[in-house]
Amino acid sequence: MMRDITLGQYYPVQSPIHKLDPRTKLFGTVILIAALFVADNIFCYILAAAAVFAVIAASRVPVRHILKGLKPVLFLLIFSVIFNLFLTDGKVLVQFWIFKITREGILRSLLMAVRLIFLVMGTSLLTFTTTPNQLTDGLEKGLGFLKVIRIPVHEFAMIMSIALRFIPILVEETDRIMKAQTARGADFESGGLIKRGKAMIPLLVPLFISAFRRAADLAQAMEARCYHGGDGRTKMKPLRYRAADRISYVVMLAFLGADIALRVLL
């Protein structure tokens, strides 16, 4: 069921992480990504894991809930693990036919997996603790400097937050149309790639039509409520840094410093 899709959905509890300024959380996510790419030894990963789990604990989002968010990227995860497992040169441990598993391969695929898992957990933690609107505000204000070079930051941010709001609705709709066409004898599961591709038409055409209809409706509803772009807009929840944000920035920079130090020194 659609309600099981947790990726990118706000998790409404009260926590210190929920209360942080979205810009702080965005910055934290960037730091985490940077740290994960900098990391090249086990200590870096231990540090990253400690950081991620500390934030999860502080956020009061159940770990189980966050793990569920990994489901959609499972395929990617398995793919990258297999890819790294079989295609890394090094000391051969097991060999059969044209496949060989190397020590480096195991290590690398493990690290890739960990990297990907933390990446998804970190970013989904951002969306679990930040409402789409806060996220929009954070991006808009955090990237506001881009307006100077004529990048429509407000519009992009708005598009993103609306996309997030409509993901569950469109997923539910997909499910409904799929069932309706199945009831008419459509088969989405068997056959080769071409047959399956063709079978998607009765699903995709109605889905696109519906998405466009929704988009037109929403545009009209927004206009009716005086939406006219970012000019002259005020905020219900304006962004203000608090003490906790300042402390977070210090901690995050310290974390990044430690991470780099671990890489350089070890």
Binding site: I177, A183, V205, P206
Partner: peptide
């Protein structure tokens, strides 16, 4: 089975 708002499945 005819679903609710079945016109949305026309393609």
């Amino acid at each position: 089975l005819v679903f609710q708002y079945p016109e949305y499945q026309l393609f």
